[in-house]
Amino acid sequence: MKFFDIVYKDLIDSSNPKELENIFLKLGFNKIFVIVPIVSKKDIILNPDFSSFKKISLEYIYLIEDISILKDLDKKIILFNPNFSKSNKLTKFLINKNIKYLYNPLSDSLIFDEQCSNLCKINNIKVVFNYNSFRSKNFQKNIKQAQFIILLLKQKLINMYFCSFAKDLNSLCSKQVLFNFLKEFNLDQDILNNILDYNKFVEKYD
């Protein structure tokens, strides 16, 4: 079984590749996705250069806010981070069938409700949580929202994943600590086994 994590480029650039490889292998991760945040077409970088990493494989993953850029990134893994300046409701974004991955549905107020979970089920959308939001200043609000959202996702059998989105080494976490922490959200062992599974994350439902 291959385990993956999602990380910012700042982490990759800040430390020695050999040291980083050993850290990721010790934490139990074989595959790493490196985030490329995209605001406009100019930010798109297609060909990564990770030749210095030999024991772990790295790939680019794109984080977008604007739906119109989706067409330029065909056949790539894209995380959608909704921009609420245009519309207050998440359901208006989730109707689009080109969105496959939803990034972190936690915010200042509850935005993910039963209607959103129904849309995720119909369109086979996967939800990716940023577990460092449970360690931030608003951790109590985020945990309360997450308890409600995770219950909804569990009932509808929607795939969910928990990743670090780390910019420095202290934001990373080992698998055993993460699994035991997520048991507090009443997640079964079957779901916990799939939370970091690379093959399930990349699987396509056409």
């Binding site: 202290n170 934001s171 990373l172 080992s174 055993q176 600590v177 035991n180 922490f181 048991k183 507090e184």
Partner: peptide, 16 residues
């Protein structure tokens, strides 16, 4: 083990 999730501020990254 689940409480170790919050110890990164004091001790940094830990490996079990």
């Amino acid at each position: 083990l689940s409480s170790l999730f919050y110890i990164n501020n004091d001790l940094g990254l830990l490996f079990i």
